[in-house]
Design a protein around this nucleic acid. Structure first.
Lengths: 150, 150
DNA sequence: ACTGATACTTTGAATATCAAATCAGTTGTA
DNA sequence: TACAACTGATTTGATATTCAAAGTATCAGT
């Protein structure tokens, strides 16, 4: 059962990063002009994005929730004025989603926040060192992939 | 607004790690003998730990939830046989929490999972390189601290 | 023995979620 | 063309998680 001490230390740091980021985003939101949004709603806005008008099912897939869950979420975001539903003329079953002006503002604010966060993550490192850090993240993502495919 | 391309790349990788880890843990749980637990319940068990019998409010603090929320969570975990309430003789208001045998099993399974994850994170790196990765995590944690205290 | 503080529990409301039922529109085919 | 099967989205009913506020029990200081 003896592990390298760095494993426990890194685990603690990862957990701390992990559990604090969500809470920080939540607090940030509460102090902003977007007080009427929860963190899940923010991530829905993020998943819709500003560069396209994805279909409802595209966004559900991206967020790994059912279409029903997304439909409810969009009802709320539409009511609050962050998202609009667009009905495709070529296939009237499809609903595409577009951020309103307010939604795009929110999107950009959240993006800027993430960029500040990443900038601090790699602060003080040289390019080769940054590449090394990226390789560690790649390792983690590979681990997740392998785990998910048994 | 031009950013180093590595910022966007790293942001994407962080987000991917971030959003996949929770889902992976959830899936892992569903396939295990602990099917009757949700991810939140697992983290509550993790916060109680096997090395002590923390009070209810200690655990609530650690999880950043209210005592009311924790009280409800403990009701469910006690009903499912993972946690026991202990009443301190010296102060009858205090409720200490202890994992049952089943709870300790769950705790160890989750710990082992985390250790595999961290091992993969630093796989193929030398000690000095691992220290560098730790410094990046420290940076991120400092950023979070600063952000939270304005 | 009061009074106020402390530790916890219960309750009611809000949100997020899924599965199943439903609705509307499209596609394939007899 | 007509109709069955399919597809994309929505609604609904049930369950989870959470918080704030009210309630209960106990303790500590005067």
């Amino acid at each position: 059962m003896s592990q390298k001490p760095s494993v426990k230390r890194i685990n603690d740091k990862l957990i701390r990063v992990y559990s604090d980021i969500l809470r920080m985003e939540e607090e940030e939101l509460r102090k902003s002009q977007f007080r009427d949004l929860g963190i899940k709603e923010m991530h829905t806005i993020d998943a819709i994005g500003i560069h396209a008008t994805p279909s409802s099912s595209d966004v559900a897939k991206k967020l790994h929730v059912t279409q029903g869950t997304l439909s409810v979420a969009i009802n709320n975001l539409a009511r609050k004025g962050y998202v609009e539903r667009l009905h495709l003329e070529s296939d009237k079953r499809v609903v595409n989603l577009r951020l309103s002006r307010k939604g795009r503002l929110m999107y950009r604010a959240h993006l800027a926040f993430h960029q500040k966060m990443v900038a601090s993550f790699v602060k003080g490192f040289t390019e080769p060192q940054i590449e090394l850090i990226e390789r560690a993240l790649d390792n983690l993502n590979e681990f997740i992939d392998e785990y998910r495919h048994h």
